[in-house]
Design a protein around this nucleic acid. Structure first.
Length: 128
RNA sequence: CGGGCUGGCCGGGCGACCGCGUGACGUCGGUGCGAACCGGCGUCCCGAGGAAGGUCCGGACUCCACAGAGCAGGGUGGUGGGUAACACCCACCCGGAGCGAUCCGCGGGAAAGUGCCACAGAAAGCAGACCGCCCCGCCCCUCUCGAGGGACGGGGCAAGGGUGAAACGGUGGAGUAAGAGCCCACCAGUGCGGCGGGUGACCGUCGCAGCUCGGCAAACCCCACCCGGAGCAAGGCCGAACAGCGUGCGUCGGAGGGCUGCUCGCCCGAGCACGCGGGUAGGCCGCUGGAGGCUGUCGGCAACGGCAGUCCUAGAUGGAUGGUCGCCGAUCACAGAAUCCGGCCUACAGGCCAGCCCGUCCC
């Protein structure tokens, strides 16, 4: 479980992140990242709250036991990378069906690849 | 010892660090007269299942509806118990399978009525006659003159063959031209009556009748009994913003706002402030201690119930069990609570225990 401040809770936030966020995909997962203008580029200090993260694991991934395991692994992987995210940003991680059979290392490397891509090109979107 | 039947139980274990959720305690901050509430941090305890599953039944609980009765619709279906209730459980009855322990059965009514019975078969129920069997008449053939065979016509019969899931009882005798419950003996089955046993389903026995009147009700239907609807996204409480209503102040003699710690000053300027009810976003409650588990004892064949003692340790709300490891058994199944219980059904690697049956050997 993530700290309560870092959770994405309302359905409107999910909709905002998946619609307006920078999308980046890998074999096992897809990320949506929204970097708010004015947010500092990371670290645990600074103005505003910390980055907030939510997860989407549909029934296509598997049964309840499989979905829970995928969600818990993703949550833990994101927790380790939380300081690298800009403050006030929104992240939604959506699992793909191959995530059910993936190991923790595969999920973590896919997550790293997606986040690096989104952060690099996402900085251009902040000017909007 | 080897096969088998039934019931019950377990379903990876121990340890280290980091992380999350509920609760308790401590501490800090905020609100409040206070009780207390909210938030942060720290420590400690606890933290998915036997099916949590499918959502198929039955209840509790909540809201709505409701004088009573009936119809429609749905459900249940041997009997007697158990239970809050059930389609569940226990015991028994009947029928079937097995040497047996035991298992199986959607177990009311076909003599209230309607309907259906494929294929095959002559015929599938107000019975009927394909191949057959027998008698009579007439014709033909053979002939050892006793008779035998064949064709046609009229009539009798249902024993045998053959079809089928199922063909109007079975075996034997008597009888006959051939035959037939036509008659007789025994058996099976049906109905009625008597006696005996059982709370009852039903069983045992005796007598009589008719000889014998298929199956499907998961076809319609009939009978008996039961059932109001929606569901925790139930329901209750608080409640922004926008809109509505009311009151007050105000539209150049200016409400209100911005710059500001305050005053002055400057600027923008037509709405602003308060109250009211409904109630959206959102939040809180409902939310887990209950028809509860275990032990003993009493009643009962049992399911279960009474009494006494004892134990209680999930309550999330984007939804808590994960990550990195060590050792061992071993390569680890099916699978994740969402209002709560009682069941049913389905999935499942492997393991443990008890009782009983059959066979073999020994005493």
């Amino acid at each position: 479980m993530l700290p309560a401040d870092s959770r994405l809770t309302t359905s409107t936030s999910f909709r905002h992140a998946t619609r307006a966020g920078r999308r980046s995909g890998a074999r096992t997962l897809v990320t949506h990242l929204v970097v708010e203008p004015g947010g500092s580029t990371g670290g645990s200090t600074g103005p505003g709250g910390p980055a907030r993260v939510g997860f989407v694991v549909s029934k296509a991934v598997g049964g309840a036991v499989v979905r829970n395991r995928v969600k818990r692994r993703l949550r833990h992987a994101v927790r380790d990378r939380l300081p690298t995210l800009p403050r006030e940003s929104l992240l939604v991680v959506r699992a793909q069906p191959p995530a059910a059979a993936a190991t923790y290392e595969e999920l973590a490397s896919d997550l790293d690849r997606c986040l690096q891509r989104s952060l690099r090109s996402g900085s251009g979107r902040v000017e909007r």
